[in-house]
């Protein structure tokens, strides 16, 4: 039940991110959407690790069950990779803004087409 709720939350966040990516024309907003999508995957990973009644995976704790530690490690990695992607997305946005003075991807897309 708990896990389903967590999955659903993650799915909702993912839907928000994807929706933003599909509908927003501003590059900054698209960056935010990408970031939201990354977060949803982290949430999904953590939800996947959930074990009913499990403690945090630290050996010092006296507990009967621990949650699955591997998705936590993967989540950390995924966060960092998401951060890297986000950084270059922002860098591209800044570069575009410096050159064109706008961050509207739809207009930029048409302005920079090569074969007109």
């Amino acid at each position: 039940m708990m896990q389903t709720a967590a999955y659903l939350t993650a799915a909702g966040v993912f839907a928000i991110g994807l929706y933003g990516m599909l509908t927003q024309r501003d590059m900054i907003k698209i960056c935010i959407s990408i970031s939201i999508m990354d977060s949803s995957f982290v949430m999904a990973l953590v939800a996947a690790a959930y074990v009913p009644g499990g403690a945090a995976p630290i050996a010092g704790f006296e507990a009967l069950r621990f949650v699955d530690p591997l998705p936590h490690a993967l989540a950390l990695t995924a966060i960092v990779i998401g951060a890297g992607i986000l950084a270059i997305a922002l860098a591209l946005t800044v570069a575009v803004y410096r050159h064109y003075g706008t961050t509207d991807i739809a207009r930029l897309f048409i302005a920079t087409r090569e074969d007109s």
Binding site: G12, L18, Y19
Partner: peptide
């Protein structure tokens, strides 16, 4: 339409994960 698609897709993901 976009929002509907996104929700559908993510719900599909949830079903698959479960």
């Amino acid at each position: 339409t976009a929002g509907f698609l996104c929700l559908l897709l993510s719900l599909g993901f949830v079903v698959l994960l479960l």
